[in-house]
Amino acid sequence: MAFPLFTVSQLSLFFQVTGGSGFIGYHILSQLLNNRYFVRAAARGKKIELLKKALSANYSSDRFEVIEVADITSGDLSQYLKGVDGIIHAAAPLPGRVDVETAFKISIEGSLHILREAVHAKVPRVVVTSSIATFPLPQGPFGANDLAVVEFAEKHTEIDVTLAGPAFTYGPFAPGFECFLPEPDLSALSTNESIYALLRPGNTRIPIAPGAIDVRDAARAHILALKFPPSTEVGPKRFAIVSPHRSSYRDALTIIAKERPELKDRLTDATLAREWSLYTFPVEWQKIDDVLGLKADSFILWDKTALDTVDSLVHAEGLWKEKGFEVPPLFHHL
C-alpha cells in the first residue's frame, strides 16, 4: 500500500476518518480537505473506488488517501494509523436502519477496536460519532456503545476521546457525493429521506423529528473536537449537538413553496405537518461553546438547511433523469 509522501513544506495535521462514504462522514472529509489537512479515509468493498472518484473530482490526490479496511471491528490497523494526529470514527449505523446484531457489532466492537488500535499507535485524539437517541439515558446497542466508549476513555487517559452525537441531520450533499447516488435509492439519501418525502404531494406520513442539525454543522463539530482542550483539562467530552433554531417541517414546506415556486405543485400539504411542543433539544450550550468553540449563534438557519437540501435532492434527480430513471421515483413505502 503506497501512502502519500508528505514533504517538509507540506507539514500539516494528518487525520484518519472512518465512515467517509456516509452522509456526515463525507462532509467531514470535505471540510478537512477544505481546511488543508491531510486525510486517510477507510472504506471497504465497492465504496473504495467510489470514494476515490468522489474525492478526486474536487481535491488533489496528494492530500488524501483511501485505504481498505474490510472489517472495522478486527484486524491490525497499526500500518494505517502510523503518524496520524487524530481519528474521526464516523462509521456509525443509523438507529432503525440495521438489525440489532449488526448495530451492536458496528457500534460497540467497531468503536472499541478503533480505540484500542489508537492506543497502540499512540494516536493522541479520537472523536466517535454517537447517536443523540442515547441522550440522556443510553439504551440498546447505540447507548451501550456510548457507555463502552466512556468506560474505555476513563481507563486510557493517554488518548483524548470525544463522543459527538448529532441530532436528526439534514442538508445538501457535499460535492462529489453524487458518486454514491448512481440511481434512485432511499437508503442512500440517509436522513435527507425525510426532506425528500416532502416533495410528494400525496404523502401523509410526515415523521416526527423535533430537533435537527445541518450536516455541515455536524461535520464542523467533529473537526472542532479534534482541536480543543483535552479531557484532562475540561472533563469528559460527550456532547449532544443540535441546532438551537426551530426545525419545523411545516416551516420547511412554507419556505420551499415561497423560494422554489417551481416545486410548489410537488409539495406535501403543509397542514399535515404536525406542530410539536419542542423544536430543539436542551443541550449544554455553555460547555459546547467553552470546549468545542461551537457557538449557538453560528449554526446554519433551518430555512437555509431546508432550501439547500431540496436543491441538492433536485440536482440528484437531474442526474437520475440523465440516466433514464423515473423521477420522482415511486417509493410506495413513504
Rank of each mutant, 00 (worst) to 15 (best):
D62Q: 15
K47F: 09
H89K: 03
A42R: 08
G45F: 08
G75M: 06
S74G: 05
Y59K: 06
G22A: 10
I87F: 01
S56K: 10
A41T: 06
G22D: 08
F14S: 04
A42D: 03
L29G: 01
G19H: 02
D62W: 13
A57H: 10
K52V: 02
T73W: 00
L32Y: 09
F23H: 10
K46D: 12
Y80Q: 11
S60K: 12
V39C: 12
V69D: 00
N34K: 14
L32R: 06
I24T: 11
I87C: 11
I24C: 04
D76K: 03
I24V: 13
K82Q: 13
T73A: 12
I48E: 03
K52I: 00
E68Q: 15
A57Y: 14
A43N: 10
H27I: 05
D85M: 15
F23C: 01
S74W: 14
E68L: 03
R44F: 05
L50F: 04
V66I: 11
K82N: 15
Y59C: 05
Y26T: 04
H89N: 09
G75D: 11
L32M: 06
D62Y: 07
S61D: 13
F15M: 11
S60E: 09
Q79K: 14
Q79H: 15
S78D: 14
V69N: 01
K47E: 12
S60M: 07
A70I: 08
N58R: 10
A43C: 11
S56D: 05
I72L: 13
S60Q: 01
Y59L: 05
A54D: 09
N35R: 10
N35W: 12
F23W: 06
A43Q: 01
S74D: 13
A70H: 05
K52M: 04
I28K: 04
N34C: 07
L32F: 02
V84T: 06
I28S: 03
D71Q: 10
G22P: 09
G83Y: 00
Y37E: 05
F14V: 15
G83R: 01
Y59V: 00
I88G: 10
H89L: 09
L33K: 08
V84L: 07
I48C: 15
F64P: 02
G19V: 10
F38W: 13
I88M: 12
D85K: 07
I72M: 13
I88E: 01
A54T: 02
L29K: 02
D71F: 04
F14K: 06
V17C: 04
R36F: 15
V17F: 11
H27Q: 13
Q31H: 04
Q79C: 12
K52G: 07
V66W: 09
Q16F: 14
K47H: 15
